[in-house]
Amino acid sequence: MNLTKNQNLRRYLWPCAGLLVLLIINAIIAPEFFHIEFKDGRFYGSLIDVLNRAAPVALLAIGMALVIATGGVDLSVGSIMAIAGAASAYYITKGVDNLAIIIGAGLLAGLIAGVINGLLVGYMSIQPIVATLILMVAGRGIAQLMNEGQIVTFDHAGFSFLGTGDFLGLPFPVVLVIITFIIVQLLTRRTALGLYIEAVGANPSASHYMGLNAKAIKMSVYCVAGLCAALAGMIAAADIKGSDANNAGLWLELDAILAVVIGGASLMGGRFSIFLAVIGALIIQTLTVTIILSGIPPKFNLLIKASAIIIVLLMQSPRFQQQLSQLNFWSKKKESNRV
C-alpha cells in the first residue's frame, strides 16, 4: 500500500524540491529575492517578476502536458503564438476597437491551428512530431503573410492590459495562467476527460476496444494546446505592443516541452499533471533568474539551461538511478572498510 503511495508522492516531490532548492539558492545569493512590496494596488518583487515572465511558457506547458499525455508532442505552439499575435494585431490596426473581436480573432487563430494539428495527428494518424512540424514551418510564414512582412505595432489600451495590466495585485498574465489552470484542471479532473487522455496515451489500442474515440480526444488536446498558445501569443504581443512574426514565441515550444518533462511526464504518454507542468515552467524561469542573480554573464544562460535539462533527464532515467545507487553502495562499502 505504502509503496504505490510513495511512488505517487515521489512524482510530485522531485520537481517541487527542485524549485524549492532554486528558490533557496536565490534567497542566499540575493536576500531581497523574497521581498515583495505592495504599491499602487499591485505587488512588486523578484518573485512576482518570475511568475509574470513564466506566464507564457506556463500557458504553453498546460496545453503541452495534455498533448504529451496522449503520446504526442506539439512543435507548432511557438508559431501559433506568432499567428495569434498577428491576428489580433491585424484587427487592431484595421481600427477594430471591440476587445472581444480582437481577442476572439487571436483565440480563433489558435483554435484553427489546433484543429489542423488534430486532424493530422488524430484523423490522418501522422506522427505528432512530423505533423506539428508542418505548422511549425508554415506557421511563421502565415504570420508574416498576415503582417505583410512587417513588425506591426499598435496602441490599444484594452488589449495591452493582457500583457501589462494587473488584477487583485497580480500581473494579468499570471491571473490568466491561474484561470487557465483552473479551467483545464476542472475539465480534466472533475470529468473523465483526464482519464481518457491518460488511457489513450497509455494504450491506444486497448482504449479503442473500450469504445474511446481516440481521434476526438487527440483533436481536443491539440485544440486546447492551440488555445493556450494563442493566449500566450496575445500576452506576448500585448506586452511589446506589437506583433513580430519572426520572433514571437520563437523556441518557446521547446521550453514548454522541457517544462512538461521537468515536471516528470514521460514523452511516451500516459500519466500527466498540469500542476507539475506549471512547476516545470517556474523552474525554467527561476533558473534564468538564478543565473542573473549569481552574476554569471547572461551568455551562459543557454549552456546552464542545457546542463540542467541533461541532469533532469538523467535523474529520470532508471538506468542512471541504478548507477547512482551503485555508486552510493561503493562509497558506503569504502567507509565501512575504513572503520
Binding site: 508542418i134 505548422l135 514551418v137 508554415a138 506557421g139 511563421r140 510564414g141 502565415i142 508574416q144 503573410l145 505583410e148 512582412g149 512574426a245
Partner: peptide
C-alpha cells in the same frame, strides 16, 4: 514575398 517559401515548404 519570401514568406511564401515557408508556406510552400509546409504544404
Amino acid at each position: 514575398s519570401s514568406w511564401w517559401t515557408k508556406i510552400v515548404i509546409g504544404l
